[in-house]
Structure formats: C-alpha cells, structure tokens
Design a protein around this nucleic acid. Structure first.
Lengths: 255, 255
DNA sequence: ATACATAGTGTATTTTTTACACTAAGAAAA
DNA sequence: TTTTCTTAGTGTAAAAAATACACTATGTAT
C-alpha cells in the first residue's frame, strides 16, 4: 500500500494505514431539531444494495497522516464539507467492531486488507445547517441529516460512537458556550434556548436562560428583528467570538 | 508479526500491531507533591546507555487487543502496577513524534518495524502512592516517580502527552471528586486540600474548602486521629465510594 | 514552661440560582 | 376590522452557594 498516492485538496496521502481510521460525528441544528450527518455506502463494483445502510463518514487514515488532518480530508471527500472545526473525542478499538454481515461485505468490496481489526478515532463538530451543504462523493452515495432521536442501526460500532459523542456534547454545553457553532450568524434567544433544550433533553426556564446568556457577555444584541413570522418578531443576536475564546475556562471553580 | 505470541497475566497477545501503541500517565501523590510515573528504557542488546533517558510506560498494542486492555497489560509489564483504573485521554498521531536520535536508536533496538509512524493512545490514572509499589520489568530498567514541576525532557512526544493530561486532570478536578483516588484510605482534610492546591496550582481558603468537601457528602468522618505529629493531630476521613459514583455528574447545571 | 506547627472553627456579605405569570407585537383567520 | 393565535419579552423575591476573613486548640520538641 505505501506507494499508492491519494490526492485531495487536503494534501497527498501516500498509502493508507489499514489499521487506523477516523469517523466524523457532525452535528447540525435546525428548527426540526438536533441532527447528525450520516452517509449511505456504495458497495463498490459489487451488485449489492442494502436498505437503510447508514454510517458515519469515515475511512482509513494515511500512513503518515495526522489523524486531525485525516478527519478533515475524509469528511471533505465523503460529504464535501470543509472549513469545519473537528475535535477529537475518543478512540474505539473493540475487536468485534465488525460483526454485521453487511459490514463484512462492504469491507471486502472496498479494502485491500479487509479482515484486520481497525482502531478508529472519533471526531466531532458542530455546524450551522444553513451555512453548509453536504454533497455525497467518494464511496458515499448519500449524505443526509438525521435527527438524533431517530438514528437507526448504523454500520460497525457507529451507534456506540454517536452515543458517546452525544454524552460528550451534553457535558460540554454545561461548561462551554459551544452552542453558538450550531446557530446561524444571526439568531433569536428562543432558537438558542431550543438548541440547549434539544441537547440536554429537558426544559429550561425562559427568563433565567435569557438572563444567563445575556449576562455571559458573548452575545451581541443586533438592531434587527425577525420578519414574516406569525407572531411577535424576535430580536436577533450574534455571537462575540473574542469573548467566546476567553470563556472556555470552567465557569464555576474553587476560589 | 502475527504468530508471535505474548503471554501475560492479562491474556495472550497474538502479534503486535506496529502502528498502534498506548502510553500511561500515572499520577501519584504524597507529601512532597503530585508525581508522574516514568520509566528508564533499556536499549536491548545494544551496548548503549543514556543519562536521564525517561519515558512514559508504553508499548505497542496487540493486533486484536482492546486498547483499554493493552494499557492495563503494558503498565503491568513495565511497572508491575495492576488493578488500577485507567481512563483513555487522547490519541496522538504526529508523524514527527520520533525526532530525537535516542528514540530512533531505541526503536531500532527493540522494534521489528522501527521506522513506521506509530499512533499512540494516552491513558491516565490516579493512584495512592502508599498503596502501590512500582517495580520495573520488561524493557524498563527503572520505574520512578517524578514531581510534575520537575519533569525533564522525555522520549518521543511524551512531554506533550503529560502536559495534555495535566490539563485534563485540572479540568476534571473542578467537576468530579477524583482527588480521592490519589489519597490513602484514611486522610486528613489538610492533605486533601494540599492535593487540590497542587493540582490547581493555587491556594484555596481552608474554611471554605472544608465546608464544601464535608458538605459534598462523600466523606466519612472517622473516629481516628493522626499520631506522632509535631502539632495538633488532624482527624482522619475516608471516602464514601457509593456517593462518589452518583456525584460524577456536573455540579452546576442549567436548571 | 515555652515555642512551634498545624488543626479546627463561624459569620456577614455578595453572588448566583431558582421559581414563577403576565403583557406585547405581529400574522392569520373570522 | 376585530378577534384569535403564537411566540417575544419582562421583574422580583427567596433560597442557595460562594467568598473573605482571624483567632483558638492541641499535640511534639526544645
């Protein structure tokens, strides 16, 4: 395999490491809820098709490729998404990651060394659905968003990976203002509150939420309002990136 | 490499994966401070010796070995430590992880495929120094504790790994009562406070700290006191494991 | 007997969190 | 054009948590 050169916008990869992969858990948010980006795999030259064959975008990394870069490259190759901040979450190495017949067929169709145990490192990102468009390419036939409450059985151990990442997301949102990555440039406080409620899976008091968010200092109140909504239009806010960075420290510390 | 069988108390490993390793960052605490366990490497049959050649305990994982198990096995093989809760922290994949001449010599002496980029997954544990004794074995000539403030240049990217783990430790101690893993079975509140101050690198108010810790509910006040100390003996406490588990949730949440 | 070192204790003030219900503004329907 | 519907937006009082702060207690060593 070393010798095989793969070109992409993200550099040339000389040879794929058959033992290491990355998988990307991309969260997006719109009015219907919190979603994850899933691809449908093509089974190469095989004349096989499966219904509901969904997986996280992911693939082998290069022999000398930084995993962080592999995640960026592979996400781009499979979904066209780029300029996204991907954060490493966890590395999964269960030898029985490949147990479903579908997965074995797929690996045989697409991998040069299909039978080895692959260690995969999961990356996570939060993006604003309005600002990005996912278009399938590579071995991805489709690339679509799925509500986190309605994720079907996925390839390999991808359900486990998604579950783990959701836990990490829930934990993070208590401590860091990460929600803003999922918002459009301009948003109302109700949209933001809705996001928090979706991620945490519980109701939040409106007045307390607003006081806390405005008090946090990383919101900029715009002189703009919603229009053409069948109710009182909400004032729009945007997000102060400078204050964001400095607020990534824990909010509530001993002394 | 597949075919080579490695036996250990922690199972038989059939063949080592030359692309993946684990490294263990083991924290211990005693009255002199917060320490990390480091080994000194033996250079196999080579007649080479280096001064101050220190590294984290770590090695290649098996082809079909769960990384979690590899960490447990390798820590045991190199230091004799066992029954320690190791937690995965991060995976490091920098292609220039191996840049120092010493490291290249060592890899050539000990590895079958010394030249490939190795992806390493770091594990972290907190232990009570009094309860464990580290004894070097395998390619470890020595296994000693080093104050985190005095860690010299280590092998590979191990300084980066230690730095990252310390950040994770600092963050965790704000949110979880992890400090107890580092304490002996019976401890005084001053010892615990000293630990917190060492990890966080700052002074904490004594009365507030005590109120908070006792109020947390996971301390058991013993009817025992220190003896033979040249000052008023401190009352001893132990740690309520049951309450510990349930308190692993964030302390300070929205609603 | 005294010096020394660390243990152990309480309170007032400020800040943060929580619980809670009505009015405002626009679009849509009648 | 009035009414209805839907979501936006607002304040306060009470409780809980965080903070700042200084002296007495009890043992060993001299």
């Amino acid at each position: 395999m070393p010798g095989l050169e793969i070109s992409s916008e993200y550099g040339n990869i000389v040879g794929l490491n058959p033992y290491n992969s990355v998988d990307c858990v991309i969260y997006g948010f719109d009015k219907t809820g919190l979603k994850v980006l899933l691809i449908e795999r093509s089974f190469g030259n095989l004349d096989v098709e499966f219904d509901d064959d969904l997986a996280l975008p992911g693939d082998l990394c290069g022999f000398d490729e930084l995993l962080d870069n592999a995640a960026i490259r592979i996400l781009y190759e499979l979904t066209g998404l780029k300029d996204i901040f991907l954060e490493q979450v966890h590395t999964f190495s269960n030898p029985s990651r490949v147990s479903k017949p579908k997965d074995k067929i797929w690996l045989n169709a697409i991998r040069e060394v299909p039978e080895v145990r692959v260690i995969t490192t999961a990356y996570m990102a939060l993006i604003n659905l309005e600002a990005y468009k996912a278009t399938p390419s590579g071995f991805a036939k489709k690339a679509d968003w799925h509500l986190i409450e309605e994720i079907p059985t996925l390839a390999f151990d991808h359900n486990e990976i998604v579950d783990h990442c959701i836990k990490v997301l829930r934990n993070k949102i208590y401590r860091e203002p990460i929600g803003f990555n999922l918002m459009p440039k301009k948003f109302s406080l109700s949209m933001l509150q809705n996001l928090y409620e979706r991620i945490l899976g519980k109701k939040i008091d409106k007045r307390n939420f607003r006081r806390k968010m405005i008090g946090s200092g990383f919101l900029i109140q715009l002189e703009e309002w919603q229009s053409n909504v069948a109710h009182k239009p909400a004032q729009l806010y945007s997000f102060d990136e400078n204050k964001f960075e400095s607020s990534k420290i824990p909010f509530n510390a001993i002394n």
